[in-house]
Computed example of a mutant assay.
Amino acid sequence: MAKKQEFEELSAKILKLAALSQFSFAAREKLQNNIKKLLSSLTESIGMEAAMDQVQLLRKLLSNVTNNLSEEKFRKVNTAHPKLAHLSPALLKILTTVGFSRSETLYTLKIPENAAMINPASILIAIGVIDKYLDENRYLVAKLKRQAKDDALRANLDIPDQPETTKAEAQKSSKGSVIDPNIVQLKMRLQGLKKVHTIELQKSSELSELLPYLRNISDFDDNDVAEIQLTCAAKRLVINLTPEMLRQTFEELKLYPAANVVIKLPSMQSATDTNSLTERAKANREKRKGSHTMASVGIYSTEDNAKGELIDGGGGVLWEQDVSDTEDEDNKAELPENEGEGEITKSADESHIVTGNEEL
């Protein structure tokens, strides 16, 4: 019994594949387009949610036919039945499109003459289009149902009206705090330091009112005030705090309504200049000295005045390890002077020192 059932299922699968293979591509595409248009018109006429319910019912009717090809009762659809009486004309049109014939309220799928059973190809194509339609709109229908449920719950909630005083306070808080238009917000830091100090002054205040704040964050003599430098990159302003400048207002210096400034004290200037010169000199010395290791690819001659040792890396590659030091070259030991005896000679292919008749 089990083998018979398995044989029938396998035969049905083979029959479906054979039926689809005989259906031409042009005929398949034409049938798919017609069914898509009918489904679209159904959605526009009765809405997405109601259309989904009817399409699922139609899909069940068609799948009963393909799953029971030899059963005659599944090839009949009686629209007079209470469960089928609400089917839309678009769905009934799909039934006739896939091969059903209509007789008043009865739709029947007849077996062609000289055929043992129906050809399910058109029904299988229609099921494929319907499945795609259901998959594309399933999430949308769930969203609409959830939204309708939320709207119903929201309508049943009894939310009292918000007091007028609360609304006024909410509006006042939403506007935020009021900014004084006469205030200058100055963000100041000392050159070389990261800490930023924020101070607020009146736009009509003179620059001299900045000095007390400077004394709180740094030390400088009163005689050095004229050498203090104030820089504002955004305003392209670089000034020294001379007596004339100290009498200028923040509005006149275009530091209103806000500005970021950097203060350079006299001690910082000298230290910066000294450090920069010292560091540059030190960097130059570092470039000229030190032991190096150079790796080159190529074939070297053993008599090419190479200062380093040649190391055979294999494969025709010699590595040159240069262990020379410019300091060592600068600090070579001087040869003793022997009243004109001996001389220093240097040949083209090797370097050596000769004193008298002996080679050191």
Rank of each mutant, 00 (worst) to 15 (best):
H81Q: 14
E334I: 13
R189K: 15
S174E: 11
K76G: 00
D328T: 12
A233C: 00
T198F: 00
I299P: 06
A148H: 11
L255E: 03
F74Q: 12
T272P: 08
L207W: 11
N67H: 07
T355N: 11
F74Y: 15
D222H: 10
Q5A: 13
E320N: 04
A85W: 10
G342I: 03
A152N: 08
L15H: 07
T166Y: 02
T97Q: 10
S173G: 05
D131G: 02
V225M: 07
E341Q: 03
A348C: 06
P120R: 01
R102C: 05
L153P: 11
S21I: 00
K76R: 13
E337L: 12
L38D: 10
G290R: 08
K30C: 04
G192K: 00
R75T: 06
G47N: 11
I183F: 09
V141S: 07
I14M: 11
D221R: 13
E72S: 15
E72Q: 14
P82A: 08
G314T: 00
G290Y: 07
M245W: 09
G313D: 15
R154L: 08
V262K: 04
G192S: 03
R138D: 01
E164Q: 09
E286M: 02
M188V: 13
S40N: 15
K254Y: 05
A333G: 13
S208G: 01
L38I: 00
I127G: 04
D221T: 02
K60L: 13
A80P: 07
H352A: 07
S70Y: 14
N78Q: 06
A295S: 01
F7N: 14
M52L: 14
L92I: 04
M188E: 05
V354C: 06
K195V: 12
L246G: 12
A2Q: 11
E339W: 09
E303H: 06
S24L: 02
E200T: 10
P82V: 06
S291P: 06
E8R: 15
L38A: 08
L265H: 02
A26N: 08
G315W: 00
K36F: 05
A333R: 15
D150A: 15
N137S: 01
P243E: 01
S276M: 03
K175Y: 09
Q162R: 06
E244M: 02
Q22K: 15
D221M: 02
E44F: 12
L91H: 10
D224W: 00
G298H: 02
I123V: 04
Q269H: 02
L84C: 07
V225P: 14
L42R: 11
L211W: 04
S45G: 06
E113W: 01
D219Q: 11
D180C: 12
H292Q: 05
G340K: 05
E6A: 15
L246D: 07
I263Q: 01
T43D: 07
P212C: 09
P163R: 00
K110G: 02
N156V: 06
A271G: 04
C232A: 13
K307L: 07
L253M: 10
D135M: 01
T293K: 12
L109N: 02
E244K: 09
K187N: 14
T231P: 13
V262C: 02
F74M: 14
